[in-house]
């Protein structure tokens, strides 16, 4: 086989391997997901608050001068307002399954869904 053909074959193989690994990751992710009971709010890696997903609430997560508004409505958690520059957290869809997160990188805020049973370890 000439080198060009061999390289093209290897390129396609590489793409296939990357897609396969991502697909396996996705399936593992899907299979471990179940509807969660609580959302935890972590700031700078430390869990600060915990809210039940069964109650509808609206609260402001204040980190220094920064604010993210957390809303729990109909069993899903959203960030509806934030004064961060990118607003990625606001654009994120509502989360309700264990392991799902909304991350606000500029404010170091992570909202994560957890189940009731396993407190410390969310997903092994």
């Amino acid at each position: 086989m000439c080198p060009e053909k061999r390289r093209l074959r290897n390129d396609i193989l590489l793409i296939a391997v990357i897609f396969a690994v991502a697909l396996i990751g996705f399936l593992v992710f899907k299979s471990t997901m179940k509807t969660g009971d609580y959302v935890t709010v972590s700031i700078d890696g430390v869990e600060k608050y915990r809210y039940s997903l069964s109650e509808n609430i609206q609260t402001d997560i204040i980190t220094g001068e920064n604010t993210n508004r957390l809303v729990i409505d109909g069993g899903k958690a959203y960030i509806t307002e934030a004064d961060c520059p990118d607003k990625i957290c606001v654009g994120h869809r509502g989360i309700s399954k264990t392991g799902e997160t909304i991350v606000c990188l500029p404010h170091k805020v992570v909202v994560a869904v957890v189940s009731g049973e396993d407190e410390a370890d969310i997903i092994a």
């Binding site: 972590s42 890696g45 997160t101 991350v103 992570v110 994560a112």
Partner: peptide, 8 residues
């Protein structure tokens, strides 16, 4: 972020 879920 000390959050491994970001890995997803």
């Amino acid at each position: 972020m000390q959050t491994k879920e970001i890995g997803y």
